[in-house]
Amino acid sequence: MNVFRLLGDLSHLASIIILLHKIQTTRSCRGISFKTQALYVAVFVARYPDLLFRFISFYNSIMKLIFIASSCYILYLMRYRFRPTHDPSIDTFRVEYLIGPCFVLGLIFNYGFNMTEVFWSFSIFLESVAILPQLFMLQRTGEAETITTHYLAALGIYRALYIPNWIYRYFTEDGVVDPIAVTAGIVQTGLYLDFFYVYFTKVLQGEKFELPA
C-alpha cells in the first residue's frame, strides 16, 4: 500500500458517497446513467469472487464488500425507489458493444486461462469503459448538476491516482508491473480528460457545468 493507492481508493469511496448523497438529498437520480451503474455492479461481481478463497488484507476485503454492496444499493435506488426520476430515453448507449468486446479481450489477455482470471481481466477492461454511457448522457444533455460533476471528478481522480501508484510500485517492488491493469487504467483515465478540463476550468471556478453547443 502506498499513498497514491490509498488516496485513489478513498477517492473511489468518496465518489460513491457523493452519488448516494446526491440521490438521497435531491430524491432523484436525474443525470445519472443507470447503464453505467449497472456496469459497475458487473465489474465488481466479476472481479471480487476471490473474496471467497483468497485473503489479501482486512482493508482489501472490507473495500470489496463496500463496493459490491453500494453498487447494488445504487441500482436498487435507481430501479425502485426513485425510478420515475430516471429517463431511459437519454440513457441510450448500447452496453452490449462494451460487454462483448471486453469479454473477448478477457479471453485473449489474462494471467491464466481459468474462470477467475478471465473474469478478472474482463472486469478490468469493462471498468475502463463503464463510464462511457454516463459521459454519453452528459454529452447529450450538455449540462450537469454540480454534485453530479463532483461524483464524476472523484471517480476519475480515483483511476488517475492509480497511475502514480503503479509507477511507485514498479520502482519499490522490484519491477513489478501488471500490464493489463496499467493499459486499461491509462485508457480509463484518458476517457476523463475532456471532463476534467471542463470540471477544473468551470465547475471549480464556481460556474455551472455546461458543454459548448
Binding site: D9, D50, S57, F67, Y111, G112, N114, W120
Partner: peptide, 10 residues
C-alpha cells in the same frame, strides 16, 4: 496455479 500477477489492488 500461481497467477503471474498478485491481484492485491481493488
Amino acid at each position: 496455479d500461481n497467477p503471474v500477477v498478485q491481484h492485491d489492488e481493488l
